[in-house]
Amino acid sequence: MEEKKLYTITAFTENHIGLLNKITIVFTRRKINIESLTVSESQIKGIHSFTIVVNSTKSMVEKVVSQIDKLVEVIKAFYYEEDQLIAQELALYKMPMSAIKMINMGRFIRENNARILDMQQEYFVIEKTGTAQQTQDLLEKLRPLGILEFIRSGRVIITKPMKTLDEYMEDKNNSYFYTLDK
């Protein structure tokens, strides 16, 4: 059996209604669970980027990526292994005011590279950006202090290869015809 590991799939797409559905169908058909999903506009106006994390095998990911790439509104899809990207997630932790008195909160926050985002009469909110492991570690540390709510975003990534989307699009444009009378 081929080994399963984390792969990050990115798709640059048109900003069309229903495209999220078309992309997730590719995963659903093959019974692949999506670990995290982030959608936002890319550096190019009008082109959106999907960042999808899955735990799967390389051969399965290759097939999924070529099927996403084939969707009409998808401009280009890629996949990356963990060492090919820089990834961060954002986590928010809602804590009861009582937690403040239990430890030296200021020092704790600094040591964990977090920050206080908001403070109300009954609770305060900690924000931390980091890898999934780092935000998970902080969650474990906060648990004994009576955490009220925890939420983590999908992964956002920067890839290490220097080739830009424009260059990929240029390459693709050069290797295809658009009509038969070529």
């Binding site: 048109e14 509104e73 050069n174 290797s175 295809y176 658009y178 009509t179």
Partner: peptide, 14 residues
């Protein structure tokens, strides 16, 4: 229509 961005119908022969 003769062109849709991101849609590549006829790969050039390599």
């Amino acid at each position: 229509c003769t062109y849709v961005r991101g849609y590549y119908p006829y790969p050039k022969l390599n």
